[in-house]
Amino acid sequence: MQRKIINDLEYIEIRNQAATARIALQGAHIFHYQRANEAPLLWLSDVSDFEIGKAIRGGVPICWPSFGNNNPQLAQHGFARVMMWQLVNADESNPYISELTFVLEDSQQSRALWNYKFRVEFIVKVGLVLEMELKTVNLDTAPFTLTQALHTYFAVSSIENISIKGLEEKKYLDALTLQEHFQEGSITFDQELDRVYQGVENSIVLEDLNRSVNIQNSGSKSVVVWNPWIEKCARMSAMQAESYKEFVCIESANAYEDKRIIQPNQEHILKTILS
């Protein structure tokens, strides 16, 4: 494990016999994961900002304590992805698995945005699988409502080559039209797509030309699937005109119907395993 800096952002680089990863301390943001002798699993924009106060475009942004525009008092996707986290533990005793724990606690800065006392732990295991666990603890005297997501950008050969299986017959909210539908068959792409699936309790499989990725979630019954396609991609920050071809977002979430109310002294764990 090494500490390095891109521009002003410090990050942790992990190298073991199974995989490599890079995690920025701002946002506890995983922006690279690659198994040995394979292509990177995560997509990272070639023109992504690595600046304090700006979210990295790609990897796995942590949307917390609000997903999307769920809380009008907060910026889109909350504040955790642009705040500094503390690395509190790093275990590299196993040559094939590295385990790191990052912590974010309430501060004067966070309470000015969201007036609750909390502790969030992000536990990452880097090996032949990438395991991510986001634990929220309510340390306040009042309950709070939590929506969140591990906003994972998967690198793909081309958006037109892929399909997503495991969401068949699931209800989803189309965020582009605000209409609800049920999924028919596998998901494929030929236009902008932004959907929040509900009642998801099984594994999801991303099928590409040369590999399949299994996504297994717990503490979650909602999954977000997103690709901006041509026009929206051209308008977005830290994207190139054809970036939309290179990734798909499949996000492990607690969103919309799957929001969670966390009582004082209780916790909630959102976990995903990518293999």
Rank of each mutant, 00 (worst) to 15 (best):
S243M: 00
V82M: 05
E105H: 00
N115I: 01
F31P: 00
F144R: 12
I162E: 04
R119V: 00
S157L: 02
A19W: 01
G185H: 05
G58M: 05
V225M: 01
V60I: 14
E180M: 12
L274D: 01
P143F: 10
F31K: 07
I164S: 09
G27P: 08
K125R: 11
N16R: 08
A19T: 08
L178G: 09
K165S: 08
A155L: 11
I159G: 07
E121K: 14
A24G: 08
L146H: 05
N217L: 13
G58Y: 03
L44T: 07
T152Q: 05
V120A: 14
I187M: 07
L42N: 01
K54Q: 09
N71E: 10
N217T: 00
A234E: 02
D49G: 00
L100M: 14
M83L: 14
W114M: 08
L167A: 02
I250Y: 06
F144I: 13
R211T: 09
I261A: 02
S275V: 06
D46G: 12
L42E: 05
P143Y: 01
W226F: 07
L100P: 00
N138W: 04
L173Y: 09
E13D: 07
E180T: 13
Q73S: 14
K245S: 06
K259F: 09
R81H: 13
T136N: 06
K259E: 10
V156L: 11
Q266N: 10
W43G: 02
M84S: 10
S45H: 08
Q26F: 04
F79W: 11
Y96T: 15
S157Q: 14
F189A: 07
H151R: 07
D258I: 02
G53H: 11
V47Q: 07
N69K: 13
L173E: 04
L209T: 13
S107W: 09
S158H: 15
E168A: 03
W64D: 05
V225S: 01
W114V: 06
R22Q: 15
N37C: 00
L206Q: 05
Y33K: 03
R22E: 10
K170P: 02
Q191N: 15
H29Q: 09
G127Q: 06
P143D: 12
H29V: 02
W64I: 06
R22H: 08
N115C: 06
Q108E: 14
N69E: 06
M239W: 05
V137P: 09
W85Y: 11
R195K: 13
S107D: 12
G199C: 04
E267G: 13
L167P: 02
H77I: 04
P264Y: 09
I159V: 13
G166D: 03
N115A: 13
E160L: 09
A175V: 05
N7I: 00
M83K: 15
I14Y: 04
Y11S: 03
K232H: 05
L104V: 00
N161A: 15
